[in-house]
Simulated scan of single mutants.
Amino acid sequence: MNWLPIKNKEQLDAALEESAGTPVVIFKHSTSCSISATVKSRLERQWDSAGLDDVKPYYLDLLSYRPVSNEIAEVLQVRHESPQLLLVQDGVCTYNASHMGISADALKKKLNA
Rank of each mutant, 00 (worst) to 15 (best):
M1K: 03
M1G: 06
N2M: 11
W3N: 00
L4C: 09
L4G: 03
P5A: 12
P5E: 12
I6Y: 01
I6D: 00
E10R: 11
D13Q: 13
A14Q: 10
L16E: 01
L16I: 11
L16W: 01
E17L: 13
E17H: 13
E17G: 11
S19M: 02
A20R: 13
I26M: 05
F27K: 00
K28S: 02
K28N: 03
S32D: 13
S34L: 13
I35V: 15
A37R: 10
S41F: 15
S41N: 15
R42P: 02
E44I: 10
A50R: 03
A50H: 06
G51N: 07
L52P: 00
D53M: 09
D54P: 05
V55Y: 04
P57Y: 03
P57R: 03
Y58D: 01
Y58V: 03
Y58C: 07
Y58E: 02
Y59K: 04
Y59S: 04
D61Y: 03
D61I: 03
D61N: 12
L63K: 08
L63I: 14
S64A: 15
S64V: 10
Y65N: 08
R66G: 08
P67G: 07
N70S: 15
E71P: 05
E74G: 12
V75A: 11
L76S: 05
Q77M: 13
Q77A: 15
V78A: 06
H80R: 09
E81W: 07
S82A: 11
S82P: 04
S82Q: 06
P83N: 07
V88I: 12
Q89I: 14
Q89E: 14
D90W: 10
C93V: 09
T94H: 09
Y95R: 08
A97H: 06
S98A: 13
G101N: 15
I102V: 12
I102R: 00
S103W: 04
S103Y: 05
S103V: 07
A104V: 04
D105E: 15
D105T: 14
A106F: 07
K108I: 08
K108M: 10
K109T: 14
K110R: 15
K110L: 08
N112F: 10
N112I: 13
A113S: 13
A113F: 11
